[in-house]
Amino acid sequence: MADSYWSSETIKSSDGTESVVSKLPRKNSFLEDTIAVLTLLSWFGWVWLGPWLLLGILFAAIFWASKLAITTLVVVITLTFLPAGNIWWAYRSLPLWDVWRRYFSMRLVTPPKDKFLEPHGHYLLAEFPHTVYPMGSWLGLPLCGQKGTGLPQNLRGGIASIMFQLPIVKHNYAWAGCMPAEYKLMLAHLRQPGASLSVIPEGIAGIFLAEDLQDEVIFLSKRKGFVRLAIQAGADLVPVYHMGQSQLLTFWGAEKLSRRWRASIGIFWGAWGLPLPRKRPIISLVGAPIKVKQEDHPSQEQIERVHAEFVASIKLLFDRHKHLLGPEWAEKELRIV
C-alpha cells in the first residue's frame, strides 16, 4: 500500500482538531479494475447463488444418482469439517487487496501521528455501519500493523459464528484474521497481552438500516455488549466509521426471520442489478481511543457511562470528517437509533 496509505497529510477540522488522512490512491489500470470486478462478482455471486446450486446438486445426487453431484457433495461436506485454520500472512499480503482498495478509492483517517494506536496496544475497535456487507472493515483488516497506517498489529476481526460453519467461506475469513464473534472467545483473545479485536456491534439489525439516501443511520442505542466486553478485558475502546459503505449494496429481506436465525435472509444487489458492490469511495475513520478501566464485573452505571462517551465520540468523528466525501455528504447527519 505504499502508494495509498503511506502517503498522507495532516488536516484540521472546523474545530481545530487534527487528523492524518491518506492521500487519494492511484486509479487501477483497466486490467486491475477488470480483476476487481471479476473477483468481487465471483465472491458475492457465490453468496447469491451458492445455496441454490447446493440444492440443485443435492437433488441431482439423490434423484439422478449423478456421480459428479455426489463427488461435489463429498467435497463440500469434507471442507465443512476441515478446520478453518489461522491467519495466513501470505494471503493477507496478496496484491489483490490493493486492487480492491483502489477499486473503492479507499482512504484512511486516523488521529495525528503522535496519537496513533500503539502497534502492540490493547484495543477493541467498534466499527460501524454493518450494512449489507462491511467492506471497509474487511479491506482494512490486512492494513493492521503496516507502517504508517496507525493501526495495531495483533488485531483480529470478530464475525458472525455462522460464517465459520460454511465451507470455503470460513477458511477465507480465518486466513484474513477473523474469529467467531462469541463472547467468551473474544474475551479470551482480548485478555492476551497486546491483543486487539474489531467487532461490528450492529449485527443483523444494521443490514436493514443501510442505504438511507438522506442520512446515515446506525443501530447503537441498545448495543452495549461490546462496551461490557471492553471493560472486562481492560481494552481501550476505539470508534471506527466507514463512510460510503452504506452505498455499495441494496438489501431486501425478512428482518424478523433474519434476527431469529442470526443470518441475513433475503436478496441483495449492487451495480447493474448484479451481486457486485457499486464502485463508490470508502473513507475509514478511526477515532482516538476511549480509556477504559478494567473491571471483571462492571456495573450498569459504568457501562452506560462508557457507552454514552462512545456514542458522542463516533458522532463527532463522523461530523468532523463527513465533508471529505463531497458536498452531498457534508449535508448528511448521523442518526443513532
Rank of each mutant, 00 (worst) to 15 (best):
H130L: 06
R102P: 08
G121M: 04
P134M: 00
I87Y: 14
D98C: 05
G145A: 11
D98T: 04
W88S: 14
L124E: 08
I87L: 14
L94S: 15
L94E: 10
C144N: 15
G85Y: 07
P142T: 05
Y123W: 01
G145P: 06
S93G: 01
A90V: 09
L108I: 04
P142H: 04
W89C: 11
S137T: 04
R102E: 04
P134V: 04
P119Y: 03
W138I: 12
L117C: 04
H120G: 14
T131Y: 00
Y103D: 04
S105T: 11
I87T: 14
Y133S: 13
W138E: 09
Y123R: 09
T149A: 12
S105R: 13
L139W: 13
M135Y: 15
P142W: 05
Q146W: 07
S137L: 03
G148I: 05
E127F: 15
W89L: 12
G140W: 10
G136R: 00
L108D: 05
R107A: 08
G148A: 00
P119D: 03
K147R: 12
I87D: 14
V99Y: 03
F104K: 03
P134W: 05
P142V: 04
P95V: 00
L96H: 01
P111V: 02
M106C: 11
Q146N: 11
E118M: 11
Y133R: 04
G148D: 05
S105I: 05
K115N: 14
I87V: 15
G140E: 11
K115Y: 05
L143D: 09
P112Q: 10
G121Y: 01
L139K: 01
E118C: 09
W138H: 13
E127R: 07
V99E: 09
A126N: 00
G140Y: 08
A126T: 06
H122Y: 08
S105M: 13
K113E: 15
C144W: 10
W88D: 12
A126R: 02
H120I: 04
G140N: 15
C144R: 14
W88R: 15
